[in-house]
Every structure is written in C-alpha cells, then in structure tokens.
C-alpha cells in the first residue's frame, strides 16, 4: 500500500473518531437528562407526570423509528442553519447526535427502570428528595446499565458514521465508498473494514470492563 493510501486511511480514521467522539458527547449530554426525565415522570417514577412523559416518549419514538439514512437527508436543512453546511463531517455530527440522543434516552430510562422500586422507597423513607434520589440512588444503582448502553451507542454511531460518509460526510465510510467501491480498490475496502472492526472491538472491551467494574449487585 502506498504512502498516499496510508495517509488517506489515517485521515479517514481520525475523521471517524472525531465524528463519533463529538456526536457521542452530544448524545450523552442530552440523552442522559432525557432518560432521567423519562424514568422519573413515568407511571412508576418519583415525579410522575403523564402529559410530559407521553409527549417526550412520542418524540423519542418518532426519531427512533426513522432509519438513519432518511433522518440524515431530512435534517439537511436544519443542519445547514446549525453548522453552515449540509455535508462534511461537522454536518454529519448533527444527524448522528439527533439519531443517538433518543436512543441514549431510552437506554438510560430502561436502566433506571430496572432498579428495585423498594430501594427508591427506602430512600424516600429516609427523607431523600427527588434530586437526592436521582443523584445518590438512581444514577449509581443504574450506572452499569448506563455504561453498557453508552457502549452500544458508540458502536452504533461507528456504523452510522460510515453511512454518513456515503453522503459526503467524510471518515472511513467515505473512503470505502469513493476508493473501495467506485475505484475498485479492494485493499482500501478491506483496510477500512479492519479498522472499523478494531474500533468496535476496542470500545466493546473497554465498555464491558467498565460495566463489570461498576457492578456490585451480584455475588461474585
């Protein structure tokens, strides 16, 4: 493989890491509070609020049921207002975040929902307020599940970012399409696949490790 190609692969990898990294940050920053609000306003939550829950839940469902590739196209206009362009890696971050935020919200909600309601009741009996219950009970007890959900989100975003590449988003997906597919350069195709597999493996191993380290609710 020539030096040019190596440089291309390095650039593509960095772009992918940038897209995935930044959109993951946005996804966690917005998805975590979203998930908390969903879980506490739900029927069984500590701040039960049916209208708010139904409204948020519907929006989340709409975003989650639109396939990513369509979401990307649908968001082209708003993307242009936000980052000034509807293509390129910064444009891809907008649609990647938009796809990942509701996903993270649901993952966080379901992790928090798995917590035994008796534990929350015990905290209420000890005089804990809603904020204290969220900070000291729900988040620490749900942490392993949340970490597992974040891991899954990042892996999904690696896949989505390759799709974003098809619409001129940059990154490894873009490389694979322009060189590997359109110019029949099999070595580029294989290299991008290998790099992505390694990225996914790495994220999965680190995520699993963190989830195990934070999980104490099992005997072992």
């Amino acid at each position: 493989m020539s030096d040019d190609l190596t440089a291309l692969l390095v650039k593509g990898s960095l772009e992918t890491l940038y897209m995935v990294g930044v959109s993951s940050l946005f996804a966690f920053a917005a998805g975590l509070p979203l998930g908390i609000i969903l879980s506490v306003t739900a029927e069984t939550g500590i701040l039960r609020n049916k209208p708010l829950y139904s409204a948020l839940s519907s929006v989340v469902n709409v975003f989650r049921s639109v396939p990513y590739i369509i979401l990307m196209v649908a968001l082209m206009k708003p993307t242009k207002w936000i980052v000034g362009s509807s293509i390129g890696i910064n444009a891809a971050i907008v649609s990647l975040s938009a796809a990942a935020i509701p996903f993270v919200g649901r993952v966080v909600e379901s992790s928090l929902r798995e917590i035994d309601p008796g534990i929350v009741e015990a905290a209420q009996a000890m005089g804990a307020g809603a904020g204290e219950i969220i900070r000291k009970v729900l988040l620490p007890e749900g942490l392993p599940g949340i970490i597992a959900g974040f891991t899954l989100t990042i892996i999904n975003l690696i896949g989505y970012s390759a799709m974003a590449g098809v619409l001129g988003g940059g990154g490894l997906g873009d490389l694979a399409v322009r060189y590997g597919y359109q110019r029949f350069m099999l070595d580029v195709m294989i290299s991008t696949v290998i790099i992505m597999v390694l990225m996914v493996q790495f994220i999965q191993i680190v995520g699993d490790k963190l989830a195990v380290l934070t999980r104490h609710d099992r005997n072992g």
């Binding site: 015990a122 007890e141 934070t214």
Partner: peptide, 9 residues
C-alpha cells in the same frame, strides 16, 4: 423492609 432494600452499588 422484608426485602432489605439496600443500595446494591
């Protein structure tokens, strides 16, 4: 409580 309801983490 019957089921103790301790914080597991």
């Amino acid at each position: 409580f019957q089921s103790f309801n301790l914080l597991l983490n």
